[in-house]
Nucleic acid binder design. Structure first.
Lengths: 229, 229
DNA sequence: ATTACTACTAAACGAGTAC
DNA sequence: TGTACTCGTTTAGTAGTAA
């Protein structure tokens, strides 16, 4: 979520805000800040210099202390952290969960469904990519993964509307943005055909995942699934 | 606000929450967490061990990764940070401001007012301490301090109700909890007598501040004034 | 008073590796 | 695979002090 060297800066920013540097200028000596943060005066001085260089604060050094005001960029950082926390603390479901499953070859129906123009248009519009005509089937085995899959079902999803043509009816498809193997962006869709049951999920992506990630049947694949904000 | 070694732990906790460890158990490998946080696998492992020791998370190591669940204590930390940030981001005024003034000797009226039983009872009830019968007068001089004092006037204050006896009327007194010289807890009250004007504030505390802090006329005193939540 | 540089110390980090 | 130990390296932190 944040570059690791920025952690300390973010904390300094919070401390400064608590000392009144948030939408006004506050006179804060490095010694005072240091005591508040449990660090040395020298380190506090360095932090302030770094925050100024990063454009997070405005700083004017005077013989009686430093005049500090948190800038737009710094305020944006506070807002960002606040927004993340609000979601974490208040939401009933997590921002993401991970699933792991084993690759297996299906009956090749995935391509048939995905390629349906009415579905395809919605994938492009709602997921932001044109799916490769085929799905990667993943069999979930561990209790943990099955449990997670069940939970996921209760979270809000992107809904791809169904339709009917002269021959038959195509149902609603629920999907979630996902990252496959922590590398490729795509989406998880609940098994399009009910006979797979709850232990199978399918993955779609802009390109052929088997080729892109060099996957064969039996390989374990890790998927990070994102819920909707 | 937080012990400095806990900063990184808090961040790890946020990351874990984003990975779904917030009110449920998530399977998170140290390698995966490391990549998310931009640190090494070894460091991620160490962080998890430290978080477990701190009682912030429950951790079960399995051959496929660690099962992580944020515990009550960890959740409390997230809540605490969230609450601080919410106040900072949403409040129209800062949690505290600092003022600096020069000690001077008044006409000794402070003691007269403070000792009035009707006032005194309210100080005890609303500030939580029995004030030493006397005030420390501080003359504000710098533009910064005068400006800050003006701002303070607009923030909500603890109100000490006035009263009248057979001879005269005693007005409403507005005050704020404060820390004097970053050591002693007391309160700032706006000058009880109008003839001092806006450039003077008075400080009360459980004990005599002149003695306790060895203050003489002309000494500079720094006061951290807390606004109300 | 302050701030902040330089030189040093302490702590955190990560590579290698055992399990 | 995974986790987590040891240990050398890097980085962060502080003391002393100049400005």
């Amino acid at each position: 979520m944040t570059g690791k060297s920025e952690w300390r800066h973010l904390y300094t920013l919070i401390e400064l805000a608590e000392l009144g540097a948030h939408k006004r200028t506050a006179k804060i000596s490095t010694e005072f800040l240091a005591e508040k943060m449990g660090i040395s005066q020298q380190t506090a001085s360095r932090y302030l210099i770094e925050l100024e260089r990063a454009g997070w604060i405005q700083r004017t050094v005077t013989p009686e202390g430093s005049l500090i005001k948190i800038e737009r960029a710094g305020d944006a950082e506070l807002q960002r952290l606040y927004a993340s926390l609000r979601f974490l603390v208040e939401a009933a479901y997590p921002p993401s969960v991970t699933l792991e499953g084993t690759v297996f070859t299906g009956l090749g129906e995935g391509a048939y469904y995905i390629a349906k123009e009415y579905y395809r248009k919605q994938f492009i519009e709602k997921l932001g990519f044109d799916p490769y005509p085929g799905t990667l089937n993943l069999k979930l085995t561990s209790d943990y993964d099955l449990k997670t899959r069940m939970e996921l079902e209760a979270y809000p999803a992107i809904e791809i509307q169904g339709f009917k043509n002269e021959n038959r009816t195509f149902g609603l498809v629920k999907c979630y943005p996902a990252t496959i193997e922590n590398k490729v962006k795509g989406a998880l869709i609940f098994a399009l055909r009910s006979h797979y049951g709850a232990s199978v999920v399918e993955i779609i992506a802009p390109a052929c995942l088997r080729k892109q990630l060099n996957l064969k049947d039996g390989h374990k694949v890790k998927v990070e699934v994102f819920t909707l904000p």
